[in-house]
Amino acid sequence: MQITLNGDRREIAGPLATMTVAELLAQLEIDGRRVAVELNLVVLKRDAFGSTFVREGDSVEIVNFVGGGEENFKLRTEN
């Protein structure tokens, strides 16, 4: 399925409409304890990663802490 991941369209291998956020993170080799996830502009609680499904066309933002910092960075507000 195709999702928008951190602003880029991306093909995700996996069962259609039955992939959880936790499974997505595992596929991307991202440690879920160190990140925050926003799904279609809604920030998820970490304990909901295992019960929240990612669907075709969803917009997913995965963020973590970095040194900061006043870089010129923007979360994209458009979908």
């Binding site: 991202i30 995965i62 963020v63 970095v66």
Partner: peptide, 8 residues
């Protein structure tokens, strides 16, 4: 600390 997109 700053909050930024993870480098996928």
């Amino acid at each position: 600390v700053a909050v930024r997109r993870v480098n996928i």
